[in-house]
């Protein structure tokens, strides 16, 4: 605390508010401006994408754009439904394959791994997230694709092909560049995301829950299945949805293996497809008319909306768990 007693002679104490106050105001103003700029950035992204897609919606209407499958730049017909289908199909395959493995790994790390192994293992799995998408694409084109074509897909076709309904998923010639291969590479890419968040969520489960189940005479697995996983359910769902968001927006790796050929929907996973992101990446250079260009921007707009909704949903789910009461540790 500054003393304001009178001092003999001319005071050396400066209580001049303006001297420091002005600097503070300027600095705070500058940082606040930066924060506003970030708000503005998202605003500009959304507004520009809406503005630049106006031509396509004026040209043919939102309904035809979203719900038809004819994508014909020559006759200026732009229906993205096949792209939406390809995006959803490949992402769901990725999610279905990745979630059990990711949650399993998270369960191992939290519930089983000796403490010296925990951090190295989760660090290694999380390194998968640091590998650039283009390298996944490269690996998928030259390694995963051929494996799918010559081994996995013929196998699936032989054993599941004859089954009614399910067999429809495995029709056609296995080429290794199709929705299934895209789904598999997406699964590998979202594995670290789902694993890392699930691990975080599982460590939030109070030990009292585990002990309660143990004390009823439950085996280790029964404790996990009966007490730990149900408690973490919302958070794990959030983790999976964040993984889904990543899969839906993923571009390069998918573009390189999904085939980029078909705009029809056959239902077979061996069919080459298109995702929204890969359609943009493949076609933006060919946009030679206002309407075509606008159609491509509109795909990005749809992608933005889907990704945003999914992200918000996932955050709400993860929050429900973390907000709950915590464990009490015990010292006898």
């Amino acid at each position: 605390m500054q003393q304001t007693e009178p001092v003999r002679g001319p005071s050396r104490i400066r209580l001049d508010v303006d001297a420091s106050g002005r600097g503070d105001r300027i600095f705070e103003g500058a940082t606040k401006a930066a924060a506003w700029a970030i708000l503005g950035l998202l605003g500009i992204i959304i507004i520009l994408l809406i503005f630049e897609s106006r031509n396509i919606f004026g040209h043919q209407g939102i309904g035809q754009f979203l719900f038809t499958t004819t994508w014909d730049p020559v006759f200026l017909e732009f229906g993205v439904f096949a792209f939406i289908y390809g995006t959803v199909a490949s992402s769901l395959i990725g999610l279905l394959l990745a979630t059990p493995v990711a949650v399993g790994a998270a369960v191992y790390i939290v519930e089983y791994a000796p403490s010296w192994l925990r951090n190295p293992v989760s660090f290694t799995v999380e390194l998968l997230a640091a590998i650039p998408s283009i390298i996944y694409g490269l690996w998928a084109v030259f390694i995963l694709g051929p494996v799918m074509r010559f081994h996995v897909e013929p196998f699936l076709q032989t054993y599941f092909g004859p089954i009614p309904i399910v067999g429809g998923l495995f029709e056609g010639t296995p080429i290794g560049r199709d929705i299934l291969t895209a789904g598999v590479i997406l699964a590998i890419m979202i594995l670290p995301t789902i694993m890392a968040i699930s691990r975080e969520v599982l460590t939030q489960v109070p030990d009292t829950q585990r002990e309660g189940m143990h004390s009823l005479g439950a085996t280790k697995w029964e404790v996990i299945r009966g007490a730990v996983l149900p408690y973490a359910r919302a958070g794990i769902a959030g983790a999976a949805i964040l993984g889904l968001a990543r899969a839906i927006g993923e571009t390069m790796a998918v573009t390189m293996v999904i085939g980029n050929a078909s705009t029809s929907i056959t239902g077979s996973l061996f069919e080459p497809g298109y995702t929204m992101a890969s359609a943009i990446a493949n076609q933006f250079r060919e946009a030679d008319s206002q309407v075509y260009l606008s159609a491509i921007v509109a795909i990005a707009l749809v992608l933005l909306l889907i990704a945003t909704i999914i992200n918000i949903l996932a955050r709400i789910l993860i929050h429900t768990l973390v907000g709950r009461h915590n464990s009490s540790t015990r010292i006898g």
């Binding site: 829950q209 309660g212 189940m213 004390s215 009823l216 005479g217 007490a227 149900p230 408690y231 009490s328």
Partner: peptide, 17 residues
């Protein structure tokens, strides 16, 4: 643990059940 049960300091019912 099946034969010797335990009740804890803090009530720990399973909230999802």
């Amino acid at each position: 643990r099946r034969v010797i049960g335990m009740v804890f300091q803090k009530p720990n019912p399973f909230p999802m059940m």
